[in-house]
Nucleic acid binder design. Structure first.
Lengths: 222, 222
DNA sequence: CCAGGTTTTCGCCTATCGGTCGAAAACGTG
DNA sequence: CACGTTTTCGACCGATAGGCGAAAACCTGG
């Protein structure tokens, strides 16, 4: 029962880790988590565990990632871990305990147990779902410019995406709408950028945008 | 630790269930599974469990589905279940124990516990992955005609797909290749159908076919 | 206040993809 | 050998994605 909480910060995708104080694997970095209570399911439990690190309301998305169960994944008696993927929108800077910090997922410090593999899985899952679902909303602030959204996607995917194309794809899927507002340009000038938001009601993960659709039923969204 | 093993049989997507002999939920149908051994991970464990029902070599694909952990999902002390999706190619008719039978997933009998919800999740996962991955290979025999493949996809997805389009989409993804052979037409005549196979090396689940690709890297497959 | 630099926005072009249809191919039967 | 049947394949069309460059809208420096 542990979670890879991801957020785009300072232009790179980062994961929240805490530094172990005790053996085994003292001073190595590990994912937050904890045991399952008797009266909660795993989703409720991981949200409770994470509440010690970040405010639960700051998590824009939580989903099961996978079960990690290699008998040798931790020393001593076997521990089966149900891993979660958590996401925090980029405009939030959660207050975290002093032993906890954010690390870029592609420059991880020495990690404990199999937590590096779990981080990789989380990164991979996020990249996939950004492409074929509307999960992007979970990384973005309530309002954003297209170029801000572009840098979020680029950081999470690991490669540059075209701002033009990103806007068009998301718009065509009916996910994006303009707020009407704009932001002032920076000190170097430039046209003011228009603000957008994700359409409310599309702020949960929807079905993938499938190929091989049913015949001639021209329904795109729900 | 339990599995929804799916197969297309007699034109419909079916799931392997066994009838409980004892309380609780006697005479209701439930998914096969069992406990986790000390020296195995969950994948190995579920394959071992399933070996009692079907030969493991007949399973063309096994993947984690989700963890089901509602405290009330079974009577008595809470049991956390790691659910799997298993697939059997359509040309195989496994020998199953006498208490075990196949049931269409959209006409399930009275099921035990939350197993109906697990079946629905398995069905949904399969439908999604058929669309955006190459998972189709796991439902198909080693060689097949396009119309046979079409009926497999139709049964698994729950709606008709176009044979023309199915062949083109899979071919363009580089998944399908002709064997050169043909099958004799049925008693009512017709042109002999060409046989195809999934390209070897593409018989594992690949990355989803993503949108928002990296810029101007004209690489489709791997 | 105007020229030049910067950033965003938008329209257009092209390639590809998915959906559909219908003709042609290749077989059986009467 | 005409006809029905089934498969195959080419052609068309709309939708989608990627790319490019012009235009818009702002800044600063002269």
């Amino acid at each position: 029962m542990l979670a890879a909480v991801l957020q785009v910060r300072a232009g790179s995708l980062q994961v929240m880790l805490w530094e172990r104080a005790r053996e085994p694997h003292a001073h190595r970095w590990s994912l937050p988590g904890g045991g399952l209570g008797d009266d909660e399911d795993v989703e409720a439990s991981i949200r409770r565990q994470l509440a010690e690190k970040v405010d639960v309301r700051q998590l824009s998305h939580v989903e099961q990632l996978a079960v990690f169960s290699n008998p040798a994944r931790v020393p001593g008696p076997r521990v089966v871990a149900t891993a979660f993927l958590g996401l925090v929108p980029s405009h939030i800077d959660p207050v975290v305990p002093s032993d906890t910090a954010w690390h870029p997922v592609d420059a991880l410090p020495a990690t404990a147990f199999d937590h590096e593999a779990i981080c990789r899985r989380a990164r991979s899952r996020l990249a996939s779902k950004l492409s074929y679902t509307n999960l992007g909303f979970a990384l973005a602030p309530p309002e954003f410019t297209i170029s801000a959204l572009r840098s979020l996607y680029s950081a999470a995917l690991g490669y540059k995406v075209s701002a033009t194309n990103l806007q068009r794809v998301l718009s065509r899927r009916g996910l994006l709408e303009p707020t009407g507002g704009t932001v002032q340009p920076g000190p170097s000038g430039g046209r003011p950028a228009a603000l957008f938001r994700f359409v409310s009601g599309k702020m949960r993960v929807t079905d993938p945008f499938a190929v091989l659709r049913p015949p001639s039923t021209r329904s795109l969204g729900s």
